[in-house]
Write a protein that binds this DNA or RNA. Structure first.
Lengths: 111, 111
DNA sequence: AAACATACATAAGTTTCTTATACATAACAA
DNA sequence: TTGTTATGTATAAGAAACTTATGTATGTTT
């Protein structure tokens, strides 16, 4: 991740959402996609990403498929059925979180 | 805090925003205010709150003023000048964070 | 008398991250 | 041809922010 502590705890949700959207992705691709979408503001580090992917796999939310492209290894991840259900929950939690943060920070707008 | 990991990293920003808005507050008051604003969805635990307040004070962002009300101690915190500046920065970071998360999660809406 | 609310505090442990390092191939620049 | 950048994965040590549990103390409600 980068700069602000705020991103702590959001990495898993980001990964799962991207996989839900794109079917399957490999680690490096995820970092580039996130960088592009956030216009360079969020840079996921390998030290954060790979352990997160391994944990999601160990939890049964992701399946792995290894491919060799241009003589380089790629580990493609995709959501399992369990992972798809979990993604729905996490996205719902994210919406609640954002709504709550906006209520806290912008109380004028809440009613 | 509660449930979702997403709130990790947002506590300091929440505290500082509430202090900016209300002038001075004591710890317990902050927990009740947050609970009320989020309709019970976010419960700040003492184990998270008090160390956070002490650290913000140690960093020079908060001043303390002890009062005794109904024979019970209250430690009122308020932002220092430095704390006010920092609050502006953190709120700006929070806006960026929310915008980035919405871009990641709801790519249809970004353009 | 017991439970709950108010009010603060800390210690042990967990999770999630940062920072640094490591390995390997390919492309490009000096 | 040698160094840098890009692609691609991985782990280990340490920091930071939290959870959970516990402790102290007073006031209020059941």
């Amino acid at each position: 991740m980068k700069n602000s502590q705020l991103y702590k705890g959001s990495l898993n949700t980001i990964i799962m959402k991207l996989l839900e959207e794109n079917g399957k992705m490999y680690g490096y691709e995820i970092t580039q996609k996130v960088k592009a979408i956030t216009q360079g503001e969020l840079n996921i580090t390998e030290g954060a990403l790979y352990p997160a992917l391994h944990k999601l796999e160990a939890d049964g939310f992701l399946d792995v498929e290894i491919e060799k492209v241009d003589n380089r290894m790629r580990k493609y991840y995709k959501l399992t059925e369990s992972g798809e259900k979990e993604t729905v929950n996490r996205l719902s939690e994210l919406e609640d979180f954002i709504r709550n943060m906006q209520s806290l920070v912008n109380p004028k707008l809440e009613f």
